[in-house]
Amino acid sequence: MIDPPVVLVARPKPKRMRYIVAGGLCAAAVLFLIVGGLSRNIVYFRTVSEGVTAHGKAPDDTGRLRLAGAVLTGSVERRPDGVTFVVTDGTTRARVLHHGDPPELFKDGAPVVCEGHFVKGDRAAVPTFDSDRIMIKHGAEYRPPSVDASK
């Protein structure tokens, strides 16, 4: 366990270049892996119009995205394994097939963000979106009721 005293010996550096090349190659490979992993796991955030337009151009692309809009009033249908509804941003609509229970405050008109993907090859005017996660959109700042500070 006891180390010898440190002796500083100047050494020739014949292998230096080789180390640098090897290190550079390793770094490049790791970077390649990281960037690849990143690009495979990007989730785009789209409004319904943007999402539906992009899906219309490439109907076979099932990339994961977050679709933002509001729940169309009267479109909600409960199903045993989840819920279906229509999400809209005022101009465009998409049908959402959600797996699992929607969150507590999910209701007609609620602003929602659904995460999932469009059904592959679905060329309908109102395409179907497979969702497994619904978030109710809300501002970052919380304001409790009943107290108005400035009046």
Binding site: E104, L105, P111, I136, K137, P144
Partner: peptide, 10 residues
Amino acid sequence: LSIFPNSPQA
């Protein structure tokens, strides 16, 4: 589960 009337957050 708590609901805050002025907030959409549950």
